[in-house]
C-alpha cells in the first residue's frame, strides 16, 4: 500500500514535469511527435529506474558507511552519465531512425534535472530500497505521461487555427501552463 502511494505520488500528484517543473527541456523539445515522445519517455523511465536503484546502493553501501555523503552529487552524476551512454548505444543499435529523431535530447538526458532530482529526493526522504525502485518507476511513468499528453495535444495543434501571435513557442508555453494547472487538481488525492 505504501509503495502504491509512492508510485501514484511520483507519477501523478507530484508529477516531475508538471508539478515540480523538473525536466522541462525534453518536455518541450521532444513533444512534437507522439512516437518519439513515447520513446523518449521510455528512455528516461529506464534511466530513472536504474538510477534510483544504483544511487540507493551507492549511497547506502558506500557513501554512508565511509562518511562520504559529500560525494553524492558527483557519484550520482557519474551513474546517470554512464546510464545515458548505455541507453544511447542501445537505441543507436536498435533503431537508427529513433536515434536521429531524438537527436541531441538523448545525450541531454544526462543533464536532465528530473533524474538528478529523483536521486537526491529519494535520499532526502530516506526511502528504502524498494521504495526507491518504485519511486523511480513512478517518476519515469509520470514523465512519460506528461510527454505523451503534450505530444498528443501538439499533434492536434498542427491542424488547429492558432492565432498568429501565439504560433510556435507561445502556444506551447500556454499549453504547458494549462497542463500544469490541470495537474494541480490532483493535489488532494493523497
Amino acid at each position: 500500500m505504501e509503495l502504491l502511494v509512492i508510485f501514484i505520488s511520483a507519477a501523478i500528484v507530484n508529477n516531475f514535469v508538471l508539478t515540480q517543473f523538473l525536466g522541462i527541456c525534453p518536455f518541450v523539445g521532444v513533444s512534437k511527435r507522439l512516437d518519439s515522445a513515447i520513446s523518449m519517455g521510455m528512455a528516461v523511465t529506464f534511466v530513472m529506474t536504474i538510477t534510483a536503484v544504483v544511487t540507493w546502493l551507492i549511497y547506502h553501501l558506500l557513501l554512508v558507511p565511509y562518511n562520504l555523503e559529500i560525494l553524492q552529487y558527483v557519484s550520482f552524476i557519474l551513474v546517470i552519465a554512464s546510464l545515458v551512454q548505455l541507453v544511447e548505444m542501445f537505441i543507436r543499435k536498435v533503431s537508427k531512425p529513433l536515434y536521429d529523431a531524438l537527436g541531441i535530447f538523448l545525450p541531454l538526458i544526462t543533464t536532465n534535472c528530473a533524474i538528478l532530482g529523483l536521486a537526491l529526493i529519494a535520499v532526502l526522504r530516506e526511502y528504502s530500497f524498494m521504495e526507491s525502485l518504485i519511486y523511480g518507476i513512478g517518476a519515469g511513468a509520470g514523465f512519460t505521461l506528461a510527454l505523451v499528453i503534450m505530444a498528443g495535444i501538439r499533434e492536434e495543434l498542427e491542424l488547429a487555427d492558432v492565432p498568429r501571435h501565439f504560433q510556435g513557442a507561445g502556444i506551447t508555453m500556454i499549453i504547458a501552463g494549462s497542463l500544469a494547472l490541470a495537474f494541480m487538481g490532483f493535489a488532494g488525492l493523497i
Binding site: L62, L63, L71, V79, S82
Partner: peptide, 17 residues
C-alpha cells in the same frame, strides 16, 4: 577513501560501458 570510492565506481561503470 573518497578517491578509492569514486575511482572504483568510475572503474565499474567504465568497464560496463
Amino acid at each position: 577513501i573518497s578517491m578509492g570510492g569514486m575511482g572504483g565506481i568510475g572503474l565499474v561503470f567504465a568497464t560496463g560501458l
